[in-house]
Simulated scan of single mutants.
Amino acid sequence: MGFSIWQLAIVLGIVILLFGTKKLRNIGGDMGSAINSFKKAMKDGANDADSASDDKLESKDGKVIDAEVTSKEKDQA
C-alpha cells in the first residue's frame, strides 16, 4: 500500500503548480525557523528546570530552612 516514486512526483508537480516555488520556499523557511525556535525553547526549559531544582533555601551555615507561614487572623481565632 506504499506510494511509488511516480505517484509522489505527480503529487509534487501538482503542489508546485498550485502554490508556486516561491510560496513553497517561504513555507519551508517558516517551518524550519519554527522547528529551530521550538528546539531552543525546549533546551532552555530543560536548563531552567535543572537550575530551579538546584535552588534550595539554605541559611549561611548550610542548614535547610523549614518554616510554616500563618496569618494573624487564624492565630487570633
Rank of each mutant, 00 (worst) to 15 (best):
G2W: 05
S4D: 14
S4L: 02
S4F: 00
I5M: 07
I5C: 03
W6H: 00
W6L: 03
Q7E: 15
L8I: 09
A9N: 07
I10Y: 02
V11E: 02
L12V: 03
L12R: 04
V15I: 15
L18W: 11
L18S: 07
L18C: 08
L18N: 08
F19K: 06
G20T: 05
T21I: 13
T21Y: 00
K22D: 13
K23R: 13
K23N: 10
K23H: 06
L24Y: 01
L24G: 01
I27H: 09
G28N: 12
M31N: 07
M31V: 14
M31Y: 14
S33G: 07
S33H: 14
S33E: 12
A34G: 11
A34Q: 10
N36V: 10
N36F: 06
N36H: 05
S37K: 14
F38D: 03
K39H: 10
K40R: 12
K40W: 04
K40Q: 14
A41Q: 13
A41T: 06
M42W: 03
D44C: 04
G45D: 07
G45T: 06
A46F: 08
A46L: 09
A46N: 10
N47A: 15
N47Q: 14
N47Y: 05
D48N: 13
D48Q: 11
D48I: 14
D48V: 11
D50N: 14
D50L: 15
D50A: 15
S51C: 01
A52F: 09
A52L: 15
S53M: 10
S53H: 08
D54T: 08
D54V: 07
D54F: 02
D55W: 01
D55A: 08
L57K: 02
L57E: 09
L57A: 10
E58R: 12
S59A: 13
G62N: 03
G62I: 09
G62R: 02
G62T: 02
K63M: 06
K63H: 08
V64R: 12
A67F: 15
E68D: 10
E68W: 00
E68C: 08
E68H: 11
V69F: 15
T70G: 06
T70L: 15
T70P: 03
S71C: 04
K72W: 13
K72M: 11
E73I: 05
E73Y: 04
K74P: 01
K74H: 04
D75P: 01
A77Y: 04
